[in-house]
Simulated scan of single mutants.
Amino acid sequence: MHTMNFGEVSVTRVLEWHGPIMPPSEFVPDSEPGHWTGFAPDHWIAETDMVHCALQTWLLRSGGRTILVDTGVGNHKERPDMPMFHHLDTPFLANLAAAGVAPEDVDVVINTHIHADHVGWNTRLDGDDWVPTFPNATYLVPQRDFTHFHGNALFEDSVRPVHEAGLVQLWDDSLVLDENLRLDLAAGHTPGSSVLRLESGGDHAVFVGDLLHTAVQLIEPDFNSCFCEDPARARASRRSVLEWAADTNSLVLPAHLPGHGAAEVRRDGSKFAIKDWAPFGPVSP
């Protein structure tokens, strides 16, 4: 399990699941077949014309604290509208243990936004009840998403239990975690969609959640996924963050990239180009 160091912060990739998810024409409707050919086989499976996707959590150690960025789908969740994730059963907690972390060790959980594949391991099933998976953690949840998604099914099993346990800290606009980390609103994918910026020892990284889902969006910032709720704002947020990443030599770490999981980008006219892939992985079909 590979770990990268950014100044005084370490980053480890913890995988939950990976596999084909949907055709590119459905996932990124603005894209065309030619956009994907250079991303086979890690990101696009040519034989089946399916986008290859990963569910992963970024494990950070910063300022003496253990921090998780997004918590995947979780096990045993009722997700009938997402058949591949309905009653998912993965060894995620064992994978986390392999990285040296027990649930009780986690100090902070960051949900970049409230979607089913980002809040699932907030809770685990204990008999018939959903209880916090990380009982000693503070769960940082965007206020705008907390309001927007309040009461739906994923909120009830993955957000309400940690809120009722007194573990949730709601935030808006921006939140400084420590001398190395800051959360910023980057709305569009959801009303509260956010990014986590890392700056330490001259190194930079940005954890972008679902600001972009696919490698194609690293180079085509105007391409939205089919899941972006406010298309215009999502494009603006994506472009702004990629501009910052290019100008600061930041590693861009989305939630769902398979392959090497993350990349550095550079400006290429009005678009971007991939400068280098991270040394994580690779996670391939």
Rank of each mutant, 00 (worst) to 15 (best):
D247Y: 03
L154P: 03
A98G: 14
N75C: 07
S270F: 07
E78T: 09
D30A: 04
F92G: 08
L211T: 15
E243A: 06
M84R: 11
T248I: 04
L15V: 04
M50D: 13
V176E: 14
L181I: 08
L177H: 03
V119W: 13
N136H: 14
F272I: 06
G38R: 11
S240H: 10
E156N: 06
D42N: 10
E8C: 08
L253C: 01
L175I: 04
D172S: 14
E16P: 00
V69H: 13
N75H: 02
A273M: 08
W130G: 03
T133A: 13
M1Y: 05
M22Y: 09
G38W: 07
N5D: 12
E199G: 12
L253V: 03
T138C: 11
T138E: 15
G261E: 01
N95I: 04
H113Y: 11
T3Y: 03
P83V: 03
R79V: 07
R144F: 13
R65D: 01
P161K: 05
E229H: 11
I110H: 02
E16S: 01
D42W: 11
G281E: 05
W171G: 06
F85W: 14
F39P: 05
D172V: 04
L198Y: 13
G209C: 02
L154N: 07
G120H: 15
P91V: 12
K275E: 14
T133H: 10
P279L: 11
L93I: 14
H87P: 09
P103L: 08
G188S: 08
N95C: 06
R233P: 15
A116M: 11
A246I: 04
H148I: 04
N180S: 15
F223H: 02
G7H: 02
V283Y: 06
W121Y: 12
L212C: 10
H35E: 10
S240Y: 05
R235V: 15
S284K: 08
I21S: 05
D157P: 01
V69S: 10
E243L: 12
L93C: 15
F6A: 03
E229S: 15
H163Y: 10
F280W: 04
V208D: 00
V14G: 01
E78W: 08
M84T: 11
G209Y: 01
V195A: 08
S25Q: 06
R233N: 13
V283P: 00
T37D: 13
F85H: 15
S158W: 12
D128Q: 12
F6R: 05
G127V: 10
E16D: 04
